[in-house]
């Protein structure tokens, strides 16, 4: 007997008629329908730059303010209460088993993207030690990826007192390219993968760095926006 990973209720897997006729291998459900329905998928109507859910397809206000620094991000879900609660348990409480909840939706979303190289946003060394995992690569199953980026600046390590310094940090590049990155990235279409799009700063820094590595196009996918 299996239980829903989120609410612990007993799962009664149901085979849909389409699955039956097509004789597809069943993706083993890990959450119940009620929990799954709490997550809101982002529809076609989204901002072409950050991927946020909208009622139209024009560039949103936040993205306009970034001006020249264009981005092409897609997001799978809205960052609603259910998603916040999920990220809280998975990432901050550190329940690594919850990676399974988002594996299938992310697999489907990745299949719809066009790219040559997949680059997940890395976590810093300290997080790796204490959390024990990178929340983004946790969602990947067999999809090949390259850890082309390294974290060079740990924002938490910096003194937070001086305001001017903080402002400087905001514009400071937190990533560097991994030693062999250029050979992997050269003339490739790269897809960056991150957990949540909040301000877009992280992805813009990462995009700039990947272009420096010789990529010909960079797009990104986040689980939530």
């Amino acid at each position: 007997m299996t239980h829903c990973l989120l609410c612990h209720q007993v799962l009664h897997p149901q085979m849909t008629l389409t699955q039956f006729w097509r004789w597809q291998p069943l993706p083993v459900p890990v959450v119940c329908q009620r929990c799954e329905q709490q997550f809101e998928r982002i529809t076609e109507m989204h901002c072409p730059q950050c991927g946020r859910q909208q009622t139209n397809m024009t560039v949103c206000h936040d993205c306009e303010r970034w001006g020249e620094q264009n981005l092409r991000n897609h997001a799978v879900y809205t960052y609603n209460d259910a998603m916040k609660a999920y990220m809280q348990q998975y990432k901050f409480q550190g329940d690594y088993a919850l990676r399974q909840v988002m594996r299938e939706p992310l697999r489907q979303a990745l299949a719809q993207q066009t790219y040559d190289v997949l680059v997940p946003i890395p976590v810093n060394q300290e997080t790796w030690q204490t959390r024990g995992f990178n929340q983004v690569t946790g969602w990947l199953q067999n999809q090949p990826f390259h850890q082309a980026l390294l974290v060079t600046i740990d924002h938490k390590d910096q003194p937070q007192s001086a305001k001017t310094r903080q402002q400087r940090l905001r514009t400071q590049q937190p990533f560097s390219l991994a030693p062999n990155a250029a050979t992997v990235l050269k003339n490739k279409r790269v897809l960056l993968l991150d957990d949540v799009y909040t301000t877009g700063r992280t992805l813009r820094h990462a995009t700039a760095q990947i272009y420096l590595g010789g990529a010909k196009a960079v797009t990104s996918l986040t689980l939530a926006r």
């Binding site: 550190g94 329940d95 690594y96 790796w128 030690q129 024990g132 995992f133 990178n134 946790g138």
Partner: peptide, 15 residues
């Protein structure tokens, strides 16, 4: 299956 990529083990029951 309760092992982390950094090789540590963790308890899910009293999380």
């Amino acid at each position: 299956t309760d092992q982390l990529p950094n090789q540590a083990w963790y308890c899910r029951q009293c999380l």
